[in-house]
């Protein structure tokens, strides 16, 4: 369980508050989508939880451990973090070296390390690339390596900070598939930061942020129906809501609740006949 209590933070040399008295509790094995436009504070809160930000007010507790200088490394042991830029988190000179980096840091004996690296690469489907150098990989492949590096540490929590935003649609799709499998297999808590609502459909809960505060906290389907809230906070409506909006203008009666793509097609087909 992650408990964030009354966090306020401003970046050095900035007058505005990146986080403004933010409180939120995340239960074990939840899939959380953290959404908001650029600069809404969504990345900052993720970094606070991993102890990567200093000088904030408020309290963070991860699995019962209050976050402070003495516990930060123990807390990081429980959190896998994948960042946005595929190139800037690739530490190792080859794929397997990179996956091993976190294990080396934790002084894992080599025979065990070799095994865990292999397993982690299998999970993300990168085994055949084990000895390749990063410059010969696509962005999507590098992000899968980053995922392997995180999962090799057997964390309880996985944080993805816009980890798909620099990938092409294919790379993005592959990442989401792998995440789904991982969540199941390793009983993970996932915090996925994104500004693309279409990536939040598989989440248990969507947290919408703006101005360093929580604006909405709801299941995806519930949130998607709140079109005004989505638009006011600088995000794009899900497709079926865009279509509903256009149809509503023409005076057509529409159900209020959110319909995903297939349900929308069903509804249209019923109406058309």
């Amino acid at each position: 369980m992650i408990e964030v209590k009354n966090i306020t933070y401003s970046y050095p040399n900035s007058d505005s508050k990146a986080l403004n008295d933010l409180s939120v509790t995340i239960q074990d094995q939840q899939w959380i989508a953290l959404v908001g436009h650029n600069g809404s504070g969504k990345s900052t809160i993720a970094r606070v939880i991993d102890g990567l930000v200093e000088g904030y007010q408020g309290e963070v507790t991860v699995n019962g451990m209050p976050l402070n200088d003495d516990t930060v490394w123990d807390i990081r042991d429980q959190i896998g973090f994948v960042f946005q830029n595929p190139d800037n988190q690739f530490v190792g000179a080859t794929v397997q070296d990179d996956v091993a980096f976190g294990l080396e840091n934790r002084n894992v004996p080599r025979p065990e390390m070799v095994e865990r690296v292999q397993q982690a690469l299998e999970v993300v489907g990168m085994s055949e690339f084990a000895t390749r150098e990063p410059s010969s990989l696509s962005g999507g492949q590098k992000q899968r390596v980053a995922l392997a590096g995180a999962i090799a540490l057997q964390p309880k929590i996985l944080i993805l900070d816009e980890a798909t935003s620099m990938l092409d649609p294919q790379g993005r799709q592959e990442m989401l598939e792998i995440l789904k499998q991982m969540k199941q297999r390793f009983e993970l808590t996932i915090i996925m930061i994104t500004h693309d609502l279409s990536e939040t459909a598989m989440a248990d809960r969507v947290l919408l942020m703006n101005h360093g505060q929580l604006v909405a906290d709801a299941q995806p389907e519930k949130l998607f129906a709140r079109t005004q809230v989505i638009k006011d906070n600088g995000l794009e409506l899900p497709y079926s809501e865009q279509l509903k909006e256009q149809l509503a203008v023409a005076g057509i009666d529409l159900p209020r609740e959110y319909m995903n793509e297939d349900r929308m097609v069903e509804w249209l087909w019923d109406k058309l006949n």
Binding site: Y239, Q242, L243, Q246, L247, A250, G251, I252, L268, K271, L272
Partner: peptide, 13 residues
Amino acid sequence: VAELSQKLIPKLK
């Protein structure tokens, strides 16, 4: 979206 709704609106109405 605009094209699709234009095509559907008369039929739905």
